[in-house]
Amino acid sequence: MKDYLVMAVPKGTLYKPTISLLKQAGLNCAEMESDTRKLFFTDNRQNVRYIVCRPTDIPTFVEYGAADLGFVGKDTIVEQKKDIFELLDLKYGFCRFVVAMPESKARETDWEQLNHVRVATKFPRVAEEFFLSRGKQMEIIKLHGNIELAPLVGLSDLIVDIVSTGRTLRENRLIEVARIFNSTTRLIANRVSHRMLSERINPVIKKIKEIVENGGAEND
């Protein structure tokens, strides 16, 4: 048998609430809370290994079985369509997928009346599926960040992006014209680990589920 249960924890905004949830679930995360640049932690007492990686890489680590469990936003899961188990909604890291366009333009044009839309996004799959479902022809422009810039400089008519508070949109004078879906953090599992390591994984899942049902991780 494999000796360690491997969990993939996302860097960035989901890092803190995830560590807080793991701590509440009785896992030893002391080393991960310290100010370190390590990306790989081993807890020999509980036989758990943690890898810290970019949120968008988490489904890949889990699909290949390099990690047994992972914490990742629904937005990333939907965009990547990896072959993994999506086990629990952890409720934190809320954000929503929206279609937005410049305020000034929105006043004159209803985007649904456009014959062909040019869309800038980090999420080409989500964007394509959404516009196809609305019967729209489109041109998707894949960008890697600062999507809100695209319509301001004439690169695109619309953007598809995730927003949490909506501040960035407001600051760039963009307005939400359609909601695609809401996203929160999910617990995902490798399809083989889920079976081969069920004795180790199931108690962890159960514990996390109880915590989430009792109000979640952010009330640390």
Binding site: Y64, V192, R195
Partner: peptide, 28 residues
């Protein structure tokens, strides 16, 4: 092991289904 959950896609198979796993590989 018996697994009452999902093993294979539901559309093609009509009865008993199975998958073989190694502890060291993330896919069947």
């Amino acid at each position: 092991e018996i697994d009452l959950g999902v093993l294979r896609g539901l559309d093609y198979y009509t009865g008993v289904v199975f998958e073989g796993y190694s502890a060291y590989l993330g896919f069947p």
